[in-house]
Simulated assay, not measured.
Amino acid sequence: MNSHAKFTSIVGFDSAWTDNPKAPGAICVIRLGADGAFLHLPPRLASFAEALDVIENERGDAQKCLVALDQPTIVPNLTGSRPVDKVAGSLISWIGGGVQPASRSKKGMFDDAAPIWRFKQALGAIEDPELARTASSGTFLLEVFPALALAAIESAFCSRLAAPKYNPSNRKRFKISDWQAVAEAVRRFGTLNSLQHLDEWCSVAASSELPRKADQDKVDALICGLIGLHWFVAPRDQSVMIGDLQNGYMIAPAISGVHERLHAAARQRDVPIQ
């Protein structure tokens, strides 16, 4: 490690779950140092192996490295879904979105041979969100969920059936106005956390008249990175950890407090939320 490197590297990685070469995920890097936070690597497509290369470079230079991953990272249940999926789903389904249930029965995603486990082993990161906030050095992993973050950062998305339809591959539901609204919400979320070099990227994304699925993956990678940045720099009560390190968890922004539907679903299922 470069002894002069006093910055923290935050990697946002939308993994696409299955490591399909024809449909890779996307990655971005935010660096946080004495001069504030800036977008060091704008979102670009990346496989699990390519993501590991990016992360290796970052942790070679940074004092601390956080990987904010849009994929379940702790999946002990053989079937069904995790308690945290059900809690998140209580809000996401209400706003008109969906939560992919995570279990070991999902071949290619969470079975013993799934790429996520090889990725985690190669990464060798500490999975302890609270320690990630306070530790002075090390590599840490966080599970995040962009759809839940969007509901928290933009009130217009957080009402009955108001989830943004911004997936270009779902042509019947996709709305270009929602795509533009997501780009603007991401820009404002970055501004809230004083992220530099973001406005231009969001403006270009918003101006795209025919975005593709790969463009959505890049936006989601940026949201992942912003959730990680927010976890670090915002007061702790402006973020939430749903679930636990035994059964699975998610980190999400909670700028205006935790939505009552999440609280109610967590109480009903005896799932920690803090």
Rank of each mutant, 00 (worst) to 15 (best):
S208V: 05
S203T: 11
F189S: 04
A122N: 14
C202N: 11
R236E: 09
V186M: 06
V258H: 02
P76Q: 15
G190C: 04
G60F: 04
V144H: 10
E127M: 06
P43F: 06
F232Y: 05
W201T: 08
P211T: 02
N77D: 08
G89F: 03
I242S: 03
L32R: 15
F13H: 10
R188L: 15
T79F: 15
L210T: 12
K106N: 15
K64I: 06
S256K: 09
F7V: 00
N2E: 09
L69N: 03
P76H: 12
W94K: 00
R82G: 09
F140D: 13
T8W: 09
I95G: 02
V219I: 15
E130H: 10
R187V: 00
A102P: 01
P164E: 01
D14S: 13
K175A: 11
Q121E: 12
F7L: 09
T18H: 07
A125T: 10
R104D: 00
S47G: 00
S105G: 00
P253C: 06
A266F: 12
N170P: 01
Q121Y: 11
F232Q: 15
D244S: 13
L226D: 03
A264D: 12
L192E: 14
S105L: 08
K218D: 03
G36Q: 09
S177G: 02
C65A: 14
R31Y: 03
G36F: 07
G190R: 05
C224K: 05
G108M: 07
H230E: 13
R31D: 09
Q274S: 15
R59Y: 08
V271W: 02
L78R: 14
L195M: 10
N193Y: 08
P43V: 09
K22Y: 00
S9Q: 07
N193T: 14
P235T: 08
G124I: 13
K120A: 14
A16M: 11
S81T: 13
L226T: 04
D53A: 06
G98R: 08
D61C: 09
A183T: 10
A156C: 13
P76C: 11
S47I: 00
V204F: 01
H40W: 13
D19R: 11
A162T: 12
L229F: 00
K218C: 14
S177K: 10
E209N: 07
N2M: 06
A205S: 09
A34M: 15
L226K: 11
I126C: 02
A26C: 07
R31G: 03
A205G: 00
F145M: 10
L195V: 08
M241S: 02
Q216D: 01
W17G: 02
S169K: 15
E209M: 11
F110Q: 12
